[in-house]
């Protein structure tokens, strides 16, 4: 049993609910608070995928606009605002990256805060999840890239996600994981 890797900073679930309520009510300060919590992280994500600062800025701006506009529709049990925001940023960044960025982001970015957890994965698990997340590749594309079968990639993705979950959160908090400290 390896020690859990502390998850990066995030808002506790009850704060998340209060923040969402304020967003729904049209409180602009809530949007500012959301940006203060996650703006740097999602900008880093957008930049890692697009490799282009202006595009990354545009992606992050539009993602926050989406959250602001659609906050009233956000009803996903167990889901956090951060997961929603980062998912939107990732989708926009993958859609808007230039072809030249597509090739470079198919390679794993320089790992930072989550490096410990990723390094503990098997190589095929780590490569699969990074190619999927940062490269936006489907499992058949990942299989071709790695010279593996699609079944192997599907199993690797599942195993990687389960192991990441175990590594970044203690088992008792799997249902509603709570982030405890910075790495």
């Amino acid at each position: 049993m390896v020690d859990p890797v502390a998850r990066p900073d995030a808002r506790p679930a009850d704060d998340d609910a209060r923040l969402l309520a304020r967003l729904v009510a049209g409180d602009e300060r809530a949007l500012g608070s959301l940006y203060d919590s996650y703006g740097a992280v999602v900008y880093g994500l957008a930049l890692a995928i697009t490799q282009d600062p202006p595009t990354a800025e545009s992606v992050v701006t539009d993602a926050f606009a989406d959250v602001w506009r659609e906050a009233r529709s956000f009803q996903r049990p167990g889901a956090t605002l951060f997961a929603w925001l980062s998912h939107t940023v990732r989708s926009l960044a993958l859609a808007r990256r230039a072809p030249s960025a597509r090739a470079s982001t198919a390679q794993p970015p320089a790992a930072s805060q989550l490096a410990l957890a990723l390094e503990r994965l098997a190589p095929v698990e780590r490569q699969s999840v990074e190619l999927a997340y940062f490269g936006g590749l489907s499992r058949s594309e990942i299989a071709r890239a790695l010279g593996e079968t699609e079944v192997t990639v599907a199993v690797a993705l599942r195993s990687a996600m389960e192991r990441l979950r175990d590594l970044v959160t203690p088992p008792s908090s799997h249902v509603t994981p709570r982030m405890v400290a910075n790495v």
């Binding site: 740097a40 900008y43 994500l45 890692a48 600062p53 805060q113 979950r165």
Partner: peptide, 28 residues
Amino acid sequence: EAFREVGALMAYAAPTVAAPSALRDRIL
């Protein structure tokens, strides 16, 4: 949903960079 929550953490694997100072105002 549980996997998406874990997947969201991958954002923290991206290199840490400082967001442009004007980005916050632009978003608001």
